[in-house]
Amino acid sequence: MSRLNAANLEIAREIMSRYPVVRSATIPLLHLSQEQNGYVTREAMQQIAELVESTAAEVYGTASFYEMFKFEPIGKYCVNICRSISCHLVGGDDLVEHAEHVLGIKPGGTTADGLFTLEAVECMAACTEGPTLQVNYRHRFRVTHQDFDQLIDDLRAGRLDAEIPPHGTLARERQHIPADKAAGNVSPDTPITPAWMEAAQ
């Protein structure tokens, strides 16, 4: 099941239809596959290559540039704690240490129950609010050790399910572009005005 399932394949085709050059859909499709499996599988990359008419090496080359794409199974919650200078000055590193202790894993590791993956990361652009962390890329600011414990408790108990979807889901509201508004794949050589542009004119 690590290729896109039927429902997602349909979504993939809609995503592809948004771009004049189908290759442009590479990254959205990578997100879609990560949403399905929690990480980007080998088979998904091969399938995406077929869909966007490139090679698996090109898809992997593109995907591996981005930290947010994972190529190994990862916890349901990816906890990133900032260790850059501003956060460091207000206890970022202590927070990392505390997290290691609470979760029983080192940065890069995943808890045995598959719930949490811990990462110590660079600046997350919230330097005035340190120490900062993210759970599945949702920010938490001025995080005390008690805040952290509470957060983990809440996540375990499912109290934050509404706010924080499992790793891989970027947004619960899926963008949907009606067929008549999609650009449609056109060869760059074809002098066709994309549908949306035509409508705008």
């Binding site: 090496a57 090109e58 992997y60 080359g61 540039f65």
Partner: peptide, 15 residues
């Protein structure tokens, strides 16, 4: 293709 980023950038094939 080039894979990874920054200091880890390398030439490689798909695994």
């Amino acid at each position: 293709h080039f894979t990874s980023r920054g200091n880890n950038t390398q030439v490689n094939t798909f695994p």
